[in-house]
């Protein structure tokens, strides 16, 4: 049985004028110990969805079951106990500003009924885990964004949760700091076997952290895949849009202009693995009689597996160009005709 089962969940908000459906008929099963991501644009309903897992948001219909406990139907005391085993971190960290880091964590320990006498030791352990042991008596206002998020993680882990929810946890941080947080989360996942559910609009994070991903659009899950498959071959329109923008190789405008004056076709090729496309290019060029110029290329790694991204400019007669595009489509995972 999966650790987190989201079954047919919908969430609608009713205000005076209209009904807004934030989450629509979503079903997801998340396994123990995995890092599951939900990606989508802002307003897709990701935050609402993730809040149904710890009962901060009640589904309008459907149910959420975590470790066999029906969160949706749980009474107050059951929900309280379940929440202690589900940590959460936020985009804006949400630390208590007027209390020290130690007191912030002590609050979570108190919430979990942790014995007062042993709290000091536990607080030091937790802060040590995120490398902030010497900052116990500092206030959040004295920390950088990345440090605040690390305190957020320490607080979320206070009651030894089985699950850690991350709501855009790296979105307020610069890329380098975001990578730091991602590294900590990975470490937590491997060492403590904590299931991580991470929602974000940042594909960089998705690439380096997620094992499986769901793509969300207008409240619906439009695609579920392994992170590698999503990047290598997105199937939904939204998936293609997000991945396309992330892997896009924008050409400088001078080069675009120069290419536009030559009759030919610019193609963006995406393929799995580290192998060079040279043999395929040589073969197509030879068989069809077109010229294929490599404009640029790179390799992205998702879950330690490679995805090649190559931009080529094909010149030749119109019929030959069509034939070449067809040939590429047969032999390469994804071919996109780039308008100039």
């Amino acid at each position: 049985m999966s650790q987190i089962e989201i079954k047919n969940v919908s969430v609608t908000f009713q205000n005076k004028k209209q009904r807004i459906t934030a989450v629509s008929q979503v079903s997801i099963a998340i396994q123990k110990g995995e890092i599951f991501g939900i990606v989508g644009l802002t307003g897709a309903g990701k935050s609402t969805l993730v809040r149904t897992i710890n009962g901060l948001q009640r589904p309008t219909t459907g149910e959420v079951i975590v470790d066999g406990i029906n969160i949706t139907r749980a009474n107050k005391s059951t929900l309280t106990r379940a929440r202690q085993k589900i940590g959460i971190i936020f985009q804006n960290f949400n630390l208590v500003q007027n209390r020290t880091l130690g007191e912030n964590i002590a609050f979570a320990l108190n919430a979990g009924g942790y014995p007062k006498r042993q709290q000091n030791k536990k607080i030091t352990e937790l802060l040590d885990l995120v490398d902030l042991a010497d900052r116990k008596d500092n206030y959040p206002g004295q920390l950088s964004g990345g440090q605040k998020q690390r305190v957020g993680i320490a607080r979320a882990l206070a009651n030894d949760p089985d699950i850690l929810l991350c709501d855009e946890a790296t979105s307020a941080l610069d890329l380098e700091t975001a990578e730091e947080i991602v590294a900590i989360l990975k470490d937590i996942n491997t060492r403590l076997h904590i299931t991580i559910v991470f929602i974000t609009h940042q594909l960089e994070v998705a690439r380096s952290l997620f094992q499986r991903v769901a793509v969300m659009e207008n409240g619906h899950i439009v695609e579920q895949a392994t992170a590698y498959d999503l990047f290598a071959n997105p199937r939904s329109a939204m998936g293609r849009r997000l991945v396309g923008r992330f892997l896009a190789t924008a050409l400088p405008s001078e080069i675009r202009q120069r290419l536009a004056s030559v009759p030919g076709q610019l193609l963006a090729l995406r393929y799995r693995g580290e192998d060079s496309l040279d043999p395929i290019i040589t073969k197509i060029a030879g068989e069809i009689g077109v010229n294929v110029n490599i404009i640029q290329g790179r390799i992205e790694y998702v879950q330690a597996k490679a995805i090649g991204v190559l931009t080529v400019f094909v010149t030749g007669q119109a019929a030959q160009l069509l034939a070449a595009i067809k040939a590429f489509k047969q032999q390469v995972d994804q071919v996109e005709v780039v308008p100039l």
């Binding site: 106990r81 379940a82 929440r83 202690q84 919430a111 009651n159």
Partner: peptide, 14 residues
Amino acid sequence: DPGVVEAATATGAK
């Protein structure tokens, strides 16, 4: 900050 209160609620605190 409602976010801070939400975070506090999420710990299961009374």
